[in-house]
Simulated assay, not measured.
Amino acid sequence: MRVLVAGDHFVTPELVIRALDDDADVTTLMSAWPYEPYGPVAEVDEASGDEDELIAALDGVEVAVTQMAPFTDRVLAAADALRLVVCTRGGPVNVNVAAATKRGVVVCATPGRNAVAAAEHTIALLLAALRRIPDVHPTVRAGEWRSDLYALDAAGHELSGSTVGLVGYGEIGARVARILRAFDAEVLVYDPYAEQGPGFVTDVDELFARSSVVSLHARLTPETRTLVDAARLARMPRGGVLVNTARGGLVDYDAVVDALESGQLGAAAFDVFATEPPAPTDRLLTASNVVLTPHLAGATVQTARRAAEQAAAAVRAYARGDRPAAVVNPEAYETVGH
């Protein structure tokens, strides 16, 4: 069984090879990501690499492991021997799953590989926003000593005793909730697709109305696009905080800036944006009381290692004739004949 590891400078080929069996027949292909940004390639999104180069590398390959390589309809049509693609991401957005299914190619993902990292980054952003750390850090470096920030109307807020609303309760949202409870925060949750439990509400508007902090952990769907708009921000207690480490499309960012300027929002923290990177004219870049990071919530050494290990486990399962974890097109799995 020939295996292609199409890696990059995050989930490197070496990480995957070390996680695979020693006797695997492995060839490698290297993408320039993240030193060069990903983007659309033909009909797939968030991809990195060249279709022709990938087609050449897939000659005679039965199994491919990748994070960003563009598995387009054209690539899949040319890969006659291919039977399994393992994408080391939560979802295979760089794989044309419909085209893979039509050709009997099983597609797997590695959900949860960045749950720890994304949850911890969420808490870091939240605390930084509540205490306005990014605003004061450069002042100390510049030789200033802002003791005036002890003034009551300038002081930050504590997480303990706050009510934090989580929109989405997958692996990341559930982990964030556990961390928040350790800070003695009250946690509310809105997720109609999760098993309901203590703190869950059935109306997202109720969550916004009761939460001084809202953190987003939902998938981007037609139903959730611009879920956070001017009307929902207006429902929050004045001076609230919004955090988004999920998907930029969940938020109307112009409405966020308006709410920051009016004082309806006291602070906001974002790792994801409507357009990535934001345009130089994006109002967020000059807004006050905003913490911004460049889609790095999942960027830890442990995330990369975990992704490689999960991918290797899927390859080993396939080689044994077992069903791999996280198959996204089960109908193709049946076609393969396992």
Rank of each mutant, 00 (worst) to 15 (best):
L4N: 00
D21T: 10
D23A: 13
A32M: 09
G39K: 00
V41C: 07
E43Q: 08
V44P: 08
S48N: 15
L54Y: 05
I55L: 02
G60E: 00
A64N: 08
V65K: 01
A78K: 07
V85E: 13
C87F: 09
R89F: 12
G90F: 10
V93E: 15
N96R: 08
V97W: 13
P111G: 03
N114V: 12
T122H: 08
V136L: 13
P138A: 07
G143R: 12
W145L: 13
D148A: 11
L152A: 15
D153L: 06
S162F: 10
G165C: 07
G168H: 01
Y169N: 04
G170S: 10
V176K: 00
A177K: 00
P192A: 03
A194C: 05
P198T: 00
G199L: 05
T202N: 11
S212P: 00
V213K: 04
R225N: 13
R225S: 15
L227S: 03
L227Y: 01
D229E: 08
M236L: 07
V251C: 04
V257I: 03
G263L: 07
G266V: 03
G266Y: 06
A268I: 01
D282W: 02
V291L: 09
H295V: 14
L296D: 04
A297K: 03
A297H: 05
T303I: 11
R306A: 08
D322S: 11
V327G: 13
P330C: 04
E334P: 06
V336F: 13
